[in-house]
């Protein structure tokens, strides 16, 4: 076959190109690798710590709740948070591609990982927002049942009853948008690899 790049063998042109190989000591490599690992661990830790802080605050108020309904509400909210922590560190935890995977399994991993994250965002009601709803609802009912002396007292809690679902709805929508964004990324990836 007659084939060249302006008179040069492409393999030769490629291999003789001037490059500056990276010079990093083992210590530098080790430091950078552990920095990367710390970043991953730190992200997971932050999310888990935030949930445990919420549980701690609820538990703190628990002893001041004289009403059994409020206490049941607190317990349900704590159970909801524990479920969220379990989901985030178990089925929702990010996987990592095996370093020596063949090219095809590497791409399959990336596609599967993106699809998994997309599905988690789309089902955020099922595993993040939903589990918190019973506890919050029972807590609110408990507070009102104890304090409301007059039907108009219930009106005072009305804004809260409206704001809370709106906040949940916004969180759901934001996650839905993020899922759509991931879907576009998956579509780009499909286009990039389809043969």
């Amino acid at each position: 076959m007659s084939d060249n790049l302006g008179g040069d063998d492409p393999i030769q042109v490629w291999q003789s190109q001037p490059v500056e190989p990276l010079i990093m000591s083992i210590d530098e490599i080790r430091k950078k690798a552990s920095k990367f690992q710390r970043r991953i661990r730190g992200r997971n830790l932050r999310e888990t710590v935030a949930s445990f802080v919420a549980i701690g605050i609820i538990a703190l108020f628990f002893k001041w709740y004289p009403d059994p309904v409020q206490r049941i509400g607190s317990c349900l909210t704590i159970a909801g948070y524990l479920y969220v922590i379990w989901r985030m560190n178990g089925p929702a935890a990010a996987g990592r591609v095996p370093l020596d995977a063949t090219f095809e399994s590497c791409l399959t991993f990336h596609r599967r990982e993106l699809a998994r994250q997309r599905d988690l965002l789309r089902t955020v009601w099922r595993w993040y927002l939903g589990p918190l709803v019973p506890g919050l609802a029972v807590s609110i009912i408990g507070v009102m049942a104890r304090r409301a002396r007059h039907p108009s007292d219930w009106l005072r809690v009305l804004p809260f009853l409206i704001v809370l679902p709106v906040v949940f709805w916004i969180i759901g929508r934001l996650n839905g948008r993020a899922a759509d964004c991931l879907q576009r990324h998956i579509d780009d990836l499909e286009r990039a690899v389809e043969q």
Partner: peptide, 11 residues
């Protein structure tokens, strides 16, 4: 070959 052919060597 098509993109870089200028005639000449064998690869």
């Amino acid at each position: 070959t098509r993109q870089f052919h200028q005639g000449g060597r064998h690869v």
